[in-house]
């Protein structure tokens, strides 16, 4: 009796009817997608690009001003850039904690995601969010939920570029 149980139906080539049905389903899905696309509201690309430009540009300009202030006070360029980066990360984290950075992000989009302040936001936001699940499995485990992929692929690219540079030398 046991051998009458097959593990699954044997794979058969699709019959003509099945093929037609499958094609019809694909066609229907495409037609529906077109209908949905015709109804959906769109982002205004020009407005979005403009907002991303001026917010992102302002963040970069602020970092540059901080760097120049350090240089004017006798810090060498390399250290001034590092210090400015640290300050920008602090500002990003502070504004996230005050609940302001997500409001900026709503308007600026990529303009506030791409700069280092956005990176700080992507780490502080989950750290705050998951505090209630505890400091180990909440804050620590989920802190890199969003920044994690950026770090992983950032490291991989850094290693690849490093290897290429090494062999080209």
């Amino acid at each position: 009796m046991a051998d009458s149980k097959q593990p699954g139906p044997p794979k058969k080539p699709l019959t003509l009817t099945e093929q037609v049905l499958q094609q019809k389903q694909t066609y229907d899905q495409q037609a529906y997608q077109r209908l949905a696309d015709s109804v959906k509201p769109r982002h205004n690309v020009l407005v979005n690009a403009f907002n991303a430009f001026w917010v992102g540009g302002s963040i970069a300009a602020l970092a540059q001003i901080i760097t120049l202030i350090f240089i004017a006070n006798g810090v060498n360029i390399r250290d001034a850039a590092t210090a400015a980066t640290i300050i920008m990360i602090f500002l990003g984290a502070l504004l996230t904690g005050l609940g302001i950075y997500d409001e900026i992000g709503k308007v600026a989009g990529a303009g506030s995601i791409i700069p280092i302040t956005g990176f700080a936001n992507s780490i502080v936001a989950p750290a705050m969010e998951y505090k209630r699940e505890g400091f180990v499995f909440g804050v620590a485990a989920r802190m890199f939920n969003i920044a994690g992929p950026v770090l992983v692929y950032g490291f991989i690219v850094a290693v690849l570029v490093g290897l290429i540079a090494y062999f080209l030398q």
Binding site: K40, N48, Y101, A108, I113, N121, A125, Y130
Partner: peptide
């Protein structure tokens, strides 16, 4: 939001849909 999407303080833009 925290189950399906992003932490609430994450600075992301929501699509119009």
């Amino acid at each position: 939001e925290r189950q399906y999407r992003f932490p609430t303080e994450q600075g992301v833009q929501r699509p119009p849909t």
